[in-house]
Write a protein that binds this DNA or RNA. Structure first.
Length: 845
DNA sequence: GCAAGGTC
C-alpha cells in the first residue's frame, strides 16, 4: 500500500490554492513540481489542472488531409493524448505514492469528465489507491469543508456523456471540415471549417442577412404636433388612429390619407385634452450577472465580447471578482450581502453607495435570476479591492460594472410614473373638404419617482420624458405641426452580445466558449466588421451544409446530443450506442456528399473569389482582386495574371475589408483597412493611386542626411498606396524619411523650427481641432521617445508611472534597462530596489 | 493545419 501524502486534484490552479488555504487553515506552502504549483501541508498535496490536460484526436497516420479520405475519419480510431505535458507529468509523480486521491474538479458535466481524465492518469501509475470525488458549488469555507467531510464517487456515466460529445464533435467537425477544404482546394491556413456550434451560429448570421437582402421597404408617414400648456412649456404629441383590430396605430400607410390628416392638423391651433392616464410602474433591479448578461452589459460600454471576457479573467486571476464563466444567476446561500457591502464601506469610489445600501431595516434580500447551477456563483466582487491605479482605465470600468451590478442586486426597486395624455383636434371650419372631422394626438410622459437601484447602477437608461400635468377638457395650443415620411427598416444585424444571447437561448456553445466561437468565425473569414456581416464564403458554406449536411448548421444537433448525453448520464443509454448512431448518420451524409464534391467545391471557390473582387481591371477587363504578397502585405492584382500584370498598391497597415460602396469612375469597390483603433477607409485604390501620381512633391527644406553633400531636399510626398511621408527628393539614392499622419489636410505654416530649419506643420482633420504637429523631425523624435516609454511597459512589473520614473533617471528603453547597473539605478529611482531591477532585466531577456 | 470544451 502507498503511504505517501494524500493528493487533491482541482480543475485549475486558482481553485487548488484556495482549497489548500481553506483545508490547511492558511498554513499551506507552495512548491513546484514539473513547473506546476503544488500546495503542501500536513500529509496533503493539492494540485490544479488547467481544464482538460488530455485531448482526443486521430492517430498521426490520419494527419495528412490529402492522403486520407475525409469519410475514413468516421471509423478511425480515436486516442487520448496529453496536451499539457508538464501537468500530466506532475500528476503522475504525485500520484505514484499517494495514499489517497480526491478529485475536486468543477461541479458540472465537463468537470466530471476532467475529473475522469485525472482519474485515468492516476490509475496509470497507481492501481490500488482510493480515488474519491468531492463536489461544491463555491469555494467557501463551509462548502469546501462539508464536501471534504462527505466524499463521494466519481460519476462515470456523467463523464461518459462528456466523452460522447467529444468524439461526436471531433468526427463530424474534422470529417466535414476536411471535406469542404479539400473540395475547394483550401488547405493550409485558409481551410474551411464547420462544427456543431460554429455551424448554427454562422447560419444565424447568414439567415439574418438573407432577411435583410429580401427586405422590401414600405413607405409610411408619421405626424406630430407640439402642444403647449400656458406657462408649462411644450411637449410633443403624435397622431394616432384605431386600426382594424382596434389597436392604436401611429403609422399611416397611405400617402394621400397622411396628407389629408396633415392638412387638418396644420390648419388647427388648439387641441382639447380627452383623457389623462397616470400609472405607477415598479422597475425591479436586475438579476446577478452570469457570463452572457455580463458580456451584454460590457457591450453597452462598447467592449467586444472577447475583450470583456479577457478583462474579467484578469480581474478574476487578480482576486477582485469571482469566476467569470458561469450560467448561474442565483447567489449561493453562503454569500452574505451585508458582509460583502461592508467590505466597500471605506472605499473612495463605492463607500457612500455601500453605506446607503446597508442603511435599511430588514435583512437584504438579493435579486435572483431563473438559472441556478452547481458549478460557480454568479459573477460578483470578492470584496478584495483594487485601487484605481492597480488597474488600467478599461479594467477599472469593468470592475466598477461588476461591483455596481452586485450593488444593484441588493438595492431597492425604482418607481416610474407614466402619464398618457390623449388630446382631440376638431377640424377647423375652413379645412379642405375631407372625411376627417376629428383626429387624436397622444403623448407619453415618464418620470423617475424613486431612483432605487438606478442610484448605484447608472448603466440603464433613465431618460425622462416630460409631459405636463393637464386635466380632461383643458385646451392646449398647437404651436407646430410636422409630417415625416419614413420607411420600414430591415431587421437589424446581430451584434456580438445579441449573438451570444441568442446562442445561449438556442442552447449552443457554453459560457466559456461562445465568445471564442464568434472570434473563430472572424478568423475563418466567415464574418467581417462589427456588427458582424457574413462573407460570400459564409453564405456558400451554409448553403452547401443546408443541402447535404443540414445537421451541422442546425441547432437541433446540439439539442439531440444534449438529450443523448442526459440519457447516458442517467444510465439509460450507453456511450457506444450514441456514438455509433451518430457515426451512421454522418456516413449517410457522406453517401450523398461524395458525388457532389466538385459542385460544392466550385460554389465555394466562386464565393471566395467574390469576397476578394473589387471590379474590372482597366487593362484586361478581368476581375481585380485583393491579394496577399509573399511578404504578407496586401495589394490589388488582376485575376488574369500572369497574362495581365496590372496592380494597385494598398496601405501597409491593417487588413483590407471590401465595402459595398463602388467608385463611379472606376467601377471598383472601395476598401477599408481594419487595424483595430487605427481602422480607416482607404477608398477606391485606383483613385488613390491616381491622386498620388498627379500630386507634386512639396519641398519644405534641406535633407539632413544628404543635403550638404548631394543637395537632396525634403519634400512632402504622397505614395500610391495612399500614405504620406516627408522624404528626400533623391530617393531611392537617399532613404531618409519621416512619417506623417494618414488622415487630414497638411498645412505648411510660416513658422520654422530653429533647430532643423523646417516649417512647422498643422494637420486639419474635418472632425477635430487642427493638430499642431510642428517640425516633422521634432515630432518624430517625440514619437520615438514615447514609443520607447511604452516599450518599457512591456517588461512585467513596469507600469506607466514606473516607466516615467525610469525615463527621468535616463533609462529610455528596454536596451538601456538591460545595460543599467541595478544598484546604481535603485539609488536613483524612488521605491525601486536593486532586486526589482534584476527581475526586470531577467524578464527583458 | 480539422471540433468543442476546459483554462491562461
Amino acid at each position: 500500500m502507498s503511504r505517501g501524502p494524500a493528493l487533491i486534484i482541482t480543475e485549475k490552479d486558482n481553485a487548488a490554492r484556495r482549497i489548500a488555504e481553506i483545508l490547511s487553515g492558511g498554513t499551506a506552502d507552495a512548491e513546484r513540481e514539473h513547473g506546476v504549483n503544488v500546495y503542501k501541508w500536513g500529509g496533503k498535496r493539492c494540485i490544479g489542472l488547467s481544464g482538460h490536460v488530455v485531448g482526443v484526436d486521430f492517430p498521426s497516420e490520419y494527419n495528412d488531409w490529402r492522403d486520407v479520405e475525409p469519410v475514413e475519419l468516421i471509423d478511425a480510431p480515436i486516442e487520448k493524448q496529453p496536451t499539457q505535458q508538464n501537468i500530466v507529468s506532475a500528476i503522475r509523480t504525485l500520484a505514484r505514492h499517494a495514499s489517497n486521491v480526491t478529485i475536486a474538479t468543477d461541479y458540472d458535466r465537463e468537470g466530471e469528465l476532467i475529473g475522469k481524465e485525472a482519474y485515468e492518469l492516476v490509475r496509470e501509475v497507481n492501481e490500488d489507491v482510493d480515488i474519491d470525488r468531492v463536489r461544491f458549488s463555491s469555494i467557501t469555507d463551509r462548502e469546501v469543508q462539508e464536501a471534504f467531510d462527505n466524499p463521494d464517487e466519481l460519476d462515470f456515466d456523467l463523464a461518459a456523456a462528456g466523452e460522447a460529445r467529444q468524439v461526436i464533435d471531433l468526427i463530424w467537425g474534422a470529417a466535414l471540415t476536411r471535406f469542404l477544404s479539400l473540395s475547394a482546394r483550401q488547405l493550409g491556413d485558409d481551410f474551411i471549417s464547420v462544427g456543431r456550434v460554429q455551424g448554427p451560429t454562422l447560419k444565424l448570421i447568414v439567415d439574418r442577412e438573407r432577411e435583410i437582402d429580401a427586405f422590401d421597404p414600405e413607405d409610411y408617414w408619421e405626424l406630430f404636433a407640439d402642444l403647449e400648456k400656458a406657462d408649462e412649456g411644450g411637449f410633443e404629441a403624435q397622431y394616432f388612429y384605431r386600426d382594424e383590430d382596434g389597436n392604436e396605430a401611429e403609422r399611416v400607410w397611405d400617402g394621400d390619407r397622411a396628407e389629408a390628416v396633415y392638412e387638418v392638423l396644420s390648419g388647427t391651433d388648439a387641441a382639447t385634452v380627452d383623457s389623462v392616464n397616470r400609472r405607477t410602474r415598479t422597475d425591479s433591479p436586475p438579476a446577478p450577472f452570469n457570463t452572457t448578461q455580463f458580456i451584454r452589459a460590457a457591450s453597452s460600454l462598447n467592449y467586444s465580447a472577447q475583450r470583456a471576457m479577457s478583462m474579467a479573467e484578469d480581474l478574476y486571476t487578480a482576486g477582485y471578482i469571482t469566476y467569470p464563466r458561469t450560467d448561474n444567476t442565483v447567489y449561493p446561500e453562503d454569500l452574505d450581502p451585508e458582509e460583502l457591502l461592508e467590505a466597500f464601506l471605506d472605499d473612495r469610489t463605492f463607500g457612500d453607495d455601500a453605506e446607503q445600501l446597508l442603511d435599511v431595516e430588514e435583512a437584504i434580500e438579493p435579486t435572483a435570476g431563473d438559472e441556478e447551477t452547481t458549478d460557480h456563483p454568479p459573477i460578483h466582487p470578492t470584496g478584495e479591492r483594487p485601487t484605481r491605479s492597480d488597474l488600467s482605465e478599461d479594467e477599472w470600468e469593468i470592475y466598477e460594472l461588476v461591483v455596481r451590478r452586485f450593488f444593484a442586486t441588493v438595492a431597492d426597486d425604482a418607481t416610474w410614473e407614466h402619464l398618457k395624455v390623449v388630446a382631440r383636434v376638431a377640424a377647423a371650419t375652413n379645412a379642405a373638404e375631407t372625411d376627417i372631422d376629428e383626429l387624436r394626438l397622444k403623448a407619453n410622459g415618464k418620470r423617475l419617482v424613486e431612483a432605487g437601484y438606478h442610484d448605484v447602477y447608472p448603466y440603464f437608461n433613465q431618460q425622462e420624458t416630460h409631459v405636463p400635468d393637464v386635466e380632461e377638457g383643458e385646451s392646449l395650443a398647437i404651436t407646430e405641426t410636422r409630417i415625416e415620411d419614413k420607411q420600414t427598416q430591415p431587421p437589424r444585424r446581430y451584434g456580438q452580445s445579441r449573438l451570444i444571447e441568442t446562442m445561449e437561448k438556442m442552447g449552443i456553445g457554453t459560457k466559456s466558449t461562445r465568445h471564442h466561437t464568434i472570434e473563430k468565425l472572424y478568423d475563418r473569414g466567415y464574418i467581417e466588421s462589427d456588427p458582424p456581416r457574413p462573407t460570400m464564403l459564409a453564405r456558400a458554406v451554409v448553403e452547401a451544409a443546408e443541402e447535404y449536411a443540414d445537421q451541422i448548421v442546425s441547432e437541433d444537433m446540439t439539442a439531440q446530443l444534449e438529450a443523448d448525453m442526459q440519457a447516458i448520464a442517467a444510465g439509460e443509454t450507453a456511450y457506444s450506442e450514441v456514438t455509433a448512431e451518430s457515426k451512421e448518420m454522418l456516413q449517410r451524409v457522406f453517401d450523398e456528399l461524395t458525388d457532389s464534391r466538385e459542385d460544392v467545391g466550385d460554389h465555394i471557390q466562386k464565393s471566395l473569389k467574390a469576397d476578394k473582387t473589387l471590379g474590372p481591371c482597366p487593362e484586361s477587363g478581368d476581375d481585380l482582386l485583393v491579394r496577399k504578397s509573399r511578404h504578407g502585405s496586401y495589394f490589388v492584382g488582376c485575376d488574369g495574371y500572369p497574362d495581365c500584370t496590372y496592380t494597385l498598391p494598398l496601405p501597409s497597415t491593417g487588413k483590407p475589408l471590401i465595402l459595398d460602396e463602388t467608385c463611379e469612375d472606376h467601377e471598383l469597390r472601395e476598401v477599408k483597412m481594419l487595424a483595430g483603433r487605427k481602422t480607416f477607409t482607404h477608398g477606391c485604390p485606383q483613385c488613390k493611386a491616381d491622386e498620388a501620381d498627379e500630386e507634386e512633391d512639396l519641398v519644405i527644406g534641406e535633407c539632413p542626411d544628404c543635403g550638404s553633400e548631394e543637395g537632396g531636399e525634403l519634400a512632402i510626398k504622397r505614395l500610391r498606396n495612399g500614405s504620406r511621408l516627408v522624404g528626400c527628393t533623391r530617393y531611392p539614392d537617399c532613404e531618409y524619411s519621416l512619417p506623417l499622419p494618414r488622415r487630414g489636410e497638411i498645412e505648411v505654416t510660416d513658422a520654422r523650427c530653429d533647430e532643423h530649419d523646417l516649417p512647422e506643420l498643422v494637420i486639419d482633420n474635418d472632425d477635430d481641432e487642427p493638430w499642431e504637429l510642428g517640425c516633422p523631425i521634432c515630432n518624430y523624435r517625440e514619437y520615438q521617445a514615447d514609443r520607447n516609454g511604452s516599450e518599457l511597459e512591456t517588461v512585467s512589473g513596469i507600469g506607466e508611472k514606473t516607466a516615467d520614473k525610469l525615463k527621468t533617471a535616463g533609462v529610455a528603453d528596454v536596451a538601456a534597462l538591460k545595460d543599467a547597473d541595478p544598484d546604481a539605478l535603485a539609488e536613483e529611482v524612488d521605491g525601486v530596489g536593486a532586486d526589482t531591477v534584476r527581475n526586470w532585466q531577467a524578464d527583458a531577456d
